[in-house]
Amino acid sequence: MLRRTFVTAAASMLVALGMFHPAEAEERFITVASTTSTQDSGLFDALLPAFTAKTGITVKVIAQGTGQALDTARRGDADVVFVHAKAQELKFLEDGFGVKRYPVMYNDFVVVGPKSDPAGIAGGKDVAAAFKAIAEKKAPFVSRGDKSGTHSAELKLWTAAGIDLPAVRGEWYREIGQGMGATLNTANAMVAYTLSDRGTWIAFANKGDLGIVVEGDKKLFNQYGVMLVNPTKIPTVKVDDGQAFIDWLISPEGQAMIAGYRIGDQQLFFPNADDPKA
């Protein structure tokens, strides 16, 4: 009796397993290496179903920092990269890993900080001055520290503020090596400043005491570009389907959807595929 129960249980477990074999693979899909900001802001959840409905191509998004996303593509594990760090993207092209870079959209970065505002920078428009004040007051600052687009933007801002980061960095400057959301969680918990893309910031649900302290400076501009991985370097790249995704992103339809993605009444991303210099 007991033995029969045992055998039955084991057998039904195996049957259940077999029944639910996923409808995985075999379908048409491409792999896109992208950034945590596009995923954490919810943009992809809004865009991808429309693209899939139109073309029958499923898009699998690996969300990483920009640097890591480009590395994933270099190893041949992605068909398309969709990131936001122009210098790194151009290097990627130059090394022959990308076919062509298309500007897609921009959003901007915001400096986020606690209500107590220990560096006294709230309400300012000059990000360089704000960064300078943070460094001088040694106010806690959380850095992504993960070679992401946001991280490289942050490093450029320190330079623009005339701060020699390696020389002044101390306990107040905390590199956590994680994505945007994790960084915001950390800043909230540590009562610290950080730099975030606006999209992730708006979508972020655990704001706590944090608020925007500096925004609107031109230096905070954040451009996204998309590239097909070069099939001459990586023969497994799905050229047609990957290009179809890129074409759709920069098409009037894709651009309109990007412009239409809102959280509450706020637009997060601004399409600018028509600006060749972006």
Partner: peptide, 24 residues
């Protein structure tokens, strides 16, 4: 797995992701 939505996203990787989105 890459934590791809609807494809390789499991409970534990979702927890990691939702935490990072601040959706505690």
């Amino acid at each position: 797995g890459g934590n791809i939505a609807g494809f390789t996203r499991t409970m534990t990787t979702s927890i990691a992701l939702e935490t990072s989105k601040g959706d505690l």
